[in-house]
Design a protein around this nucleic acid. Structure first.
Length: 878
RNA sequence: GGGCGCUUAGCUCAGCUGGUUAGAGCGUCUGAUUUACAUUCAGAAGGUCACAGGUUCAAGUCCUGUAGCGCCCACCA
């Protein structure tokens, strides 16, 4: 017999099977016209990334989908890859060279980029290795990187096409500027967070009457150096007469005009607002409208520039303090009010964003958004859970132009060239032009900026198939089937991919979007390094195993709800893996391979099989049916929990216990083997390693469970009557166990039992299965009677229409028994009352579906019968 | 300011299209075991389904409102 350790040790199996699967090429998918394609593109993790629980959840879900679809006979492709993550990666490499005292400027652009590539070669595949530890069945040979040559070509092609279509333009606008990263950011990359700031009231004296002031309120007093007007609402009576007059800007002594604009909120602050067109989006708009001067007072690294006079070179926040002090000393600071505000923060380094006037490249989004909105509205793309549809549509309908240029070095350099001699020449081309299109000079240079990382990731569903090359792969696998991702990147990525899909492929990029929850710690905080609340998936894998990690994560992830984790949560998965291991071990210990070469189908149409076997097969297939329904609906936790309950509480707790005494009977051999073998296949997408390990030890056909087929649902083996019968038997057994426990009767004490029922089915069932009941309830003798007769010193419980009596001389406390039976009688009477009330309600009879009414009637009959029997039991007790 | 989610057992949460007696895991308590598994087995206790209205024959489930918690969006000087 096979000798297996009594504990499952994941370390013995995981790496072994992963490399076998990989070596045999099971992960790779090819165009196959005979099969339905199923494709998923991975949300490419950053090359700088290390696996966290969010990845673990995200990729486990994808792996379940891919493995499941592979097993149901589809050509399943999971396209992997990584994202160059411009700013993040540049930051990492800058930090690493900083250790040697170097800045990127010291190296120069080319040398620095070389260093980034070196870094990528060394560490860039860390995350890929970690995904492998997770069991991810990606087609690794296709692994893409957004900076690869081929991929880069797609990116540049897209830029050129959009430019030629007039959807890309360059211009000076107020953008989100990160003074630390020293680059522009898109609106999405500058999320707002609340700040506790102050509202400073500043006094600006009137030019003609220096003792009179207009008081303005501001949260960023340092920008006053760039003020070129003060604005009031035209309807504001307080300021009506002042419109058109001039003020003297304190500290700077510049004359600035009082203008009127309806955008000014009379109720906010003093109703007068300082206008700094180069440092605020609203002010910028007013500046354009009123023809104001744009004075930029800051440097790109967030310090005051030469236009800031005495404040030059001060950091913006330091300047704020000094300016306030100076204003105060000179009597221009009216008051300071605490004020809650929110400001944009760099999503990479969390520095407070400076709204900054600069020349950037933008994509016009409205035209791109149109078909992308339609597709979702028409249901061609579905969100799961559906509530995200609204979030998506709301954003898309209010979409703003996308700032795509970044002042960093790591990324796709903008394919725009200028002539040193002709200021007005802009050449947009995927390859460097030889000479100026105007003057013919060869003195041309490329735009210094690179593209937003997301400007490459939004092409992921087709650029990974080498678009714009027209390939068979692209035709076959595009549109992809599903996208699995987190809510944070709906705008960054999902929405933009949909737009790109339509613009460049003329079709949706994916059909379903499954948005899973965010992984949080047990207090609901997002897991992050800085909070130190990380649970490292690799640590869990190391301690409990990959399957345990995967299963635990999935079973607690209800659709789209955030996941709250503590380490203990993973014990459930570990215990379950061990349970599967041991049940299999038990079966293997008792399995005679010669006995199992029987086709189960031969049993399907007749009753040759025992009730117990029919029951477990029915339960297996009922479960599998529900599992596939739930998988199709992206209810992974439901599917996982169904599989869990079936295996543990039905197959192990009941079935194996029931057949134990006759385990070598041929039909039991066949059924226990078949159920286990099919079960392993059905759990494989969730727990790939342990299922393979055991499957390989079990008699099996085929090379690997990974390439085997998902069990077909044998509808003819689903037998609801058998299920009902068995649950009746289980109730009998439980009730006897209950009585024993209630009365503190040791297992060693022998008890007998009388089962009495007038119900023929139950009568037969009880006598037929009395050996089973004896065994599982530890009863010495069972007699099955048609009529209930009270026995002296006995206790009786009622299961449906059946009295189960245990005679217990000297062990019974009549009072306790009476109390119990009374409470049961009261409960039954109460329920009878409810049912009668329902049935006497004409509205109910008229409006409720027949089936429901029938159920109530049946239930009432049962209850009435039960009440009679309970009373008989009670009478007997006295 | 707008939107979304959550509030169900001591804890963490399931509960899909309203329809018998509201479930699980963990924890607690009681008991068990000479071999499949103590990462186990058998059992128990524990719920006004946040609150207030409403719709309905019927509400944990649908609607409205309130409160608390959390998240997202917004040109909140």
């Amino acid at each position: 017999m096979i000798d297996l350790p009594s504990r499952y040790n994941p370390k013995d199996t995981e790496d072994k099977w992963y490399s076998i699967w990989s070596d045999k090429g099971y992960f790779s998918a090819k165009v196959n016209p005979d099969k339905k394609p199923f494709s998923i593109v991975i949300p490419p993790p950053n090359v700088t990334g290390i696996l966290h629980m969010g990845h673990a959840l995200n990729n486990t879900i994808q792996d379940i989908l891919v493995r499941y679809h592979r097993m149901i006979g589809e050509e399943a492709l999971w396209m992997p890859g990584t994202d160059h993550a411009g700013i993040a990666t540049q930051n990492v490499v800058e930090k690493s060279i900083a250790k040697g005292g170097l800045k990127r400027q010291d190296l120069g652009r080319d040398k620095f980029i070389e260093r980034v590539w070196q870094w990528k070669e060394l560490y860039g595949s860390t995350i890929i290795h970690q995904l492998k530890k997770l069991g991810a069945s990606c087609d690794w040979q296709r692994t893409r990187f957004t900076m690869d040559d081929v991929y880069s070509k797609s990116v540049l092609e897209v830029f050129v096409r959009l430019y030629e279509k007039g959807l890309i333009y360059r211009g000076s606008y107020i953008i989100n500027w990160c003074p630390r990263c020293q680059t522009a950011l898109s609106d999405e990359e500058a999320p707002h967070h609340d700040l506790n700031g102050n509202l400073y009231h500043l006094k600006y004296p009137l030019k003609d009457s220096p003792n009179e002031f207009v008081i303005v309120a501001t949260t960023r007093p340092e920008t006053m150096l760039g003020d070129t007007a003060v604005a009031v609402n035209p309807k504001d009576k307080r300021y009506k007469l002042l419109i058109g007059k001039y003020l003297i800007l304190p500290l700077v002594n510049r004359e600035i005009k009082i203008i009127s604009d309806p955008i000014v909120d009379m109720k906010f602050g003093t109703g007068a607002v300082k206008v700094t067109p180069a440092h605020d989006p609203n002010d910028y708009a007013m500046g354009k409208k009123h023809g104001l001067e744009f004075i930029n007072v800051m440097t790109p690294d967030g310090r005051m520039n030469s236009l800031a006079g005495d404040y030059q070179d001060m950091d913006r926040f330091e300047a704020r303090e000094v300016i306030l002090e100076d204003l105060k000393v000179q009597g221009f600071l009216e008051k300071v009010q605490p004020h809650h505000l929110s400001a944009g923060h760099c999503y990479r380094c969390h520095t407070i964003i400076e709204p900054y006037l600069s020349k950037q490249w933008f994509v016009k989004m409205k035209p791109l958004a149109k078909p992308a909105i339609e597709a979702v509205k028409k249901g061609r793309i579905k969100f799961f859970p559906s509530r995200w549809t609204k979030v998506y549509l709301n954003w898309m309908e209010n979409i703003q132009d996308w700032c795509i240029s970044r002042q960093i070095w790591w990324g796709h350099r903008i394919p725009v060239y200028y002539c040193k001699h002709c200021e007005d020449v802009v050449m947009v081309s995927a390859t460097k032009p030889e000479k100026c299109t105007k003057c013919g000079s060869c003195d041309i240079y490329q735009d210094e900026d690179v593209l937003d990382t997301w400007f490459s990731s939004w092409l992921w569903p087709f650029a990974t198939f080498n678009w714009p090359k027209d390939s068979a792969d692209l035709k076959y696998f595009y549109p992809t089937s599903a996208l699995v991702t987190a809510p944070e990147i709906i705008f960054f990525w999902v929405a933009r991919m949909i737009m790109a899909g339509f613009e460049f492929m003329g079709d949706i990029p994916f059909k379903d979007v499954y948005i899973h929850g965010t992984v949080r710690d047990i207090e609901g905080k997002k897991m992050s390094k800085s909070l130190g609340n990380i649970i490292d998936p690799l640590e869990i894998i190391n301690e409990y195993g990959t399957d345990a990690l995967r299963f635990s994560l999935i079973s607690i992830t209800s659709q789209g709800q955030d996941v709250y984790l503590s380490k203990e949560r993973f014990e459930q998965g570990r215990n379950f893996a061990n349970k599967i291991w041991n049940a299999s071990r038990f079966i293997l210990m008792n399995l005679d391979p010669a006995q199992i070469r029987v086709d189960l189908c031969q049993y399907s149409k007749n009753t040759e099989l025992s009730l117990i076997n029919r029951w477990i097969l029915s339960r297996l297939y009922s479960t599998l049916k529900e599992v596939s329904g739930n998988l199709k609906a992206y209810r992974f936790n439901e599917a996982a929990n169904l599989l869990y309950n079936f295996f543990w509480h039905e197959f192990c707790d009941w079935y194996l216990e029931m057949i134990k005494p006759e385990i070598h009977k041929p039909e039991n051999q066949v059924v226990m083997y078949k159920v286990l073998e099919k079960y392993l296949r059905s759990i494989h997408p969730f727990m790939p390693f342990i299922s393979e390990e055991i499957w390989q030890i079990l008699p099996h056909e085929g090379e690997s469970i990974m390439t085997s087929s998902y069990p077909h649902i044998q509808q003819q083996l689903i037998d609801k009557i058998a299920e009902e019968k068995m649950s009746f038997v289980f109730e009998i057994i439980t009730s006897i166990r209950n009585m024993r426990q209630d009365l503190d009767i040791p297992v060693t004490t022998k008890i007998n039992c009388v089962i009495a029922t007038a119900n023929k089915t139950h009568l037969e069932l009880s006598s037929q299965l009395s050996p089973l009941i004896k065994n599982l309830a530890r009863v010495e003798e069972i007699s099955v009677e048609e009529k209930y007769v009270h026995l002296r010193s006995s206790i009786t419980s009622l299961i449906k229409d059946t009295h189960v009596t245990v005679p217990l001389e000297g062990l019974i406390d009549i009072d306790i028994e009476l109390t119990k039976i009374n409470s049961r009688i009261i409960q039954t009477e109460k329920e009878i009352g409810n049912k009668k009330k329902m049935l006497s309600n004409m509205e109910f009879l008229k409006k409720a579906p027949d089936e429901i009414v029938e159920n109530v009637k049946t239930r009432l009959a049962e209850l009435t019968e039960a009440l009679k029997k309970l009373k008989a039991v009670k009478d007997g007790l006295r």
